[in-house]
């Protein structure tokens, strides 16, 4: 139902200040059921299968059962994202073919970006109407 939540694994992010999947879903699909305190996808036909809920879930409770009108059952695509890389394990419908890939996701530690460090910040207001950014000039040709 695109992304789905496994009952046994979801703890409603009770140890965190917010429900991770609900926080991150770009389309506002993940909600916490107030009685059971488990998350679910409230509008499966609007799911982009962007996997952001899957990647962010702290207990790996979320997976994807792909679009029912398109894809045969049985395959799985599971990411494990760390702060600097992501590992994908892809199992085919035939349960025999398995692919594993690992890719870098960023070359700097999380949270360390200081986009002004090392730059002289602009001070001449007349430059607002001229080309160029604070990090470098525009090309002239």
């Amino acid at each position: 139902m695109p992304s789905f939540v496994i009952v046994e694994k979801c703890d409603g992010c009770k140890a965190l200040d917010k429900t991770a999947c609900q926080y991150i879903c770009p389309n506002d699909l993940m909600v916490l059921e107030p009685v059971q305190k488990k998350a679910f996808n409230q509008e499966p036909e609007q799911c982009w299968e962007c996997y952001n809920c899957v990647k962010i879930c702290p207990v790996q409770a979320i997976e994807v059962r792909h679009y029912a009108d398109i894809m045969p059952l049985g395959s799985s695509t599971i990411p494990m994202r760390s702060s600097n890389d992501i590992t994908w394990t892809i199992k085919f419908r035939n349960q025999k073919t398995v692919k594993r890939f690992k890719f870098p996701v960023r070359t700097t530690p999380e949270g360390t970006i200081d986009c002004f460090k090392g730059f002289t910040l602009p001070s001449d207001l007349a430059d607002l109407k001229k080309p160029g950014f604070y990090t470098g000039p525009a090309r002239t040709e």
Binding site: M1, P2, P44, E45, Q46, C47, W48, E49, Y67, A68, D69, I70
Partner: peptide
């Protein structure tokens, strides 16, 4: 795709 797959824009 007009079922669930419409999410896969």
């Amino acid at each position: 795709s007009v079922g669930e797959g419409q999410g896969r824009a």
